[in-house]
């Protein structure tokens, strides 16, 4: 691998995404993507007695589904990169404690999953292993409880407020495979344009997303190829 441009890493032998799995909550199951998920839950608790435990179960079952779909045994998986939104990343660390795979707990809020994929790809391409699990989870109820107000509070949500996904997604990044490949990665910078409204996460994140995309296209010269 080598660094190209300002922020981008180009892989010489691109790692492949071998298999993916996802489990989502009831609201996500109502949407147009429902048929692509491995499992759609009917309620937010999934038989547990707290939302945090439910979120742990969601990421645990997602990773189990992923491993069984991939046909690999867990001894053949060298690393696990995972994170979530809660304090100390409790959903991933409690959810994946029985996995017996070296674990990197990561936090990148909305970018956690892509951050996991990037780190996994660097490890695999660097020759540190054959397969890495990259996963992330969130839960609407546990996120609201941690960052905003209790769900039963009778307040009105502004039009710009966001809805945290209930669910988990996981992928195996592997050295060999038929693709899709991770060819280039561009870690983004923190771009703070001073948005202080906790109910307008879109406006807070958009400048960083735009900056990362433009840098990626510039570094990989994709834009000049397209135009």
């Amino acid at each position: 691998m080598q660094k190209i441009g300002n922020q981008t890493i180009k892989f010489d032998t691109p790692p492949t995404i071998l298999q993916t799995a996802s489990i989502v909550g009831p609201k996500e199951a109502d949407g147009p993507l429902a048929k692509y998920f491995d499992n759609c839950l009917e309620d937010e608790f999934w038989g547990e007695n707290s939302w945090e435990k439910a979120e742990s179960k969601i990421i645990k079952e997602t990773v189990n589904t992923l491993i069984s779909k991939s046909g690999l045994s867990s001894e053949n998986i060298d690393y696990c990169f995972a994170g979530d939104l809660l304090n100390q990343c409790i959903s991933s660390s409690f959810g994946l404690r029985e996995l017996n795979i070296p674990f990197f707990g990561i936090f990148g809020a909305c970018s956690t999953f892509v951050e996991a994929l990037m780190l996994g790809a660097i490890f695999i391409e660097g020759g540190a292993g054959q397969n890495a699990i990259c996963a992330a989870s969130s839960h609407f109820c546990s996120a609201e409880k941690q960052f905003r107000f209790p769900l039963e509070l009778g307040n009105q949500r502004p039009q710009s407020s966001q809805w945290t996904v209930t669910g988990s997604g996981a992928a195996i990044v592997s050295k060999d495979g038929a693709g899709p490949y991770i060819t280039n990665i561009t870690p983004g910078k923190i771009v703070d344009m001073g948005i202080k409204d906790a109910n307008n996460m879109g406006a807070a994140m958009a400048p960083a997303a735009l900056d990362t995309l433009l840098t990626h296209f510039k570094d990989t010269r994709t834009l000049s190829k397209l135009l």
Binding site: W51, P150, E152, L153, G154
Partner: peptide, 16 residues
């Protein structure tokens, strides 16, 4: 009513 709600709702939320 709103004041009652603002005390009961966290009590329910953090019961876990």
């Amino acid at each position: 009513t709103g004041f009652a709600n603002s005390i009961v709702s966290p009590a329910m939320e953090y019961k876990s």
